[in-house]
Design a protein around this nucleic acid. Sequence first.
DNA 1: CGGTTGACCAAGT
DNA 2: GACTTGGCCAACC
Length: 98
Amino acid sequence: MGFKEQCYDLLKKVPQGKVTTYKALADALGTKAYRAVGNAMNKNPDAPRIPCHRVINANGALGGYAHGLKRKISLLKSEGIQIQNNRINLDQYGFDFQ
DNA sequence: CGGTTGACCAAGT
DNA sequence: GACTTGGCCAACC
């Protein structure tokens, strides 16, 4: 299993209605490859089984999405996540893999 | 095997 | 608040 697969596996643990960050994912994997995590997400566009849209920047900004941020925002909103000024409140919606 | 590219991050100015 | 800098690491060429 490669690095990317580990990212996806971990990402699948994030429940609907919550988000995580590239930093949190890398941290949970025991690496500092924050950027590599972003690359991994980018390679799996809207793969049906991987909720890439629940991954945002460590500062609460949205980050990116292979198929357009609008799509990402729509998905997040449909899960009940409120977005204000292109930002998400991590204290409220963040998931830290406990 | 070096060099470049990111959906990054933290600290400094 | 906004830039800039240096560092990080997998994937690709």
